[in-house]
Simulated scan of single mutants.
Amino acid sequence: MGRARERLLVAASRRFYDDGVHATGIDTITSEAGVAKKSLYNNFSSKAELVSAYVDARHEEWLDLHRERSAKASTATDRVLAVFDAYIDHANDGHDNGYRGCGLLNAAAEFPAGHPARDAVRGHKEQVERILFETLEAVVTEAEALELAEHFSFLLEGAVARAGLEGTPARLEHARAIASRMLAAL
């Protein structure tokens, strides 16, 4: 990835997360990235393409956090909890203006149903649930794994929303503890 493109994505990520997609103009992003407006359009055909790259980058960031946690997991239970841990790690990342919840959901909320950015975020959330399902399938039946994956997804999303409102990962940590107890009862 080129230096200008990388700097633009970093600046867009920070501004979109802190201020919102629609509230953040191209001039703000190029100024923060320290590049000319022409550099933005040499790397992205439009703000919509930059938003798409932002959503993809946020998704990859979470997947990287999950891969790191999952690689350390020795049991199926640990691999399920690695999903929660990746969300906790994200919440603990240094956010300039505090933790505001899931950057992907925040961005999706700014677009109408059917918008490509919302579809991409939905794809991320579906992938998280699929990761949970595939891990749970090793310890319970397929039907139980589907149901538990959905329950854990709901638990995660509710915890992310509350953690974002409260600006602390405490709700995510509590959700992880609930999931751990549920898994121990299997």
Rank of each mutant, 00 (worst) to 15 (best):
D56L: 12
E173V: 14
L81N: 04
R14N: 08
R69S: 09
L40S: 00
A149S: 14
R130E: 15
A185L: 08
L146H: 10
F111E: 03
R3L: 10
Y87V: 08
F154Q: 15
A57Q: 09
R58F: 07
G98P: 00
A76W: 13
V128D: 03
A161G: 07
A11C: 06
A82M: 02
F154L: 09
I29N: 01
F44K: 01
S52L: 10
A57V: 03
R122M: 11
T168H: 09
S70W: 08
A57P: 01
G114I: 05
R122A: 12
A145L: 06
L81H: 02
E157H: 13
A107L: 04
G158H: 08
F16Q: 01
H174A: 15
E166W: 07
Y17T: 02
R3T: 08
R122E: 14
D119K: 14
V121N: 08
R79I: 05
T75I: 04
A161C: 10
V160R: 09
L155T: 11
V139I: 15
H115T: 07
H90A: 14
A33V: 02
H174Y: 10
A179C: 10
A23C: 01
D89A: 15
D119N: 11
E142V: 14
L40I: 00
L136Q: 04
L155A: 11
A185Y: 06
I131D: 13
R130P: 02
F154H: 12
T24H: 02
K37R: 14
S180R: 14
M1G: 15
H22G: 11
A143N: 10
A76V: 15
V139R: 15
A163Y: 00
E134G: 12
A113M: 13
S31T: 14
P112W: 04
A12Q: 04
E60S: 15
L81W: 05
A108N: 04
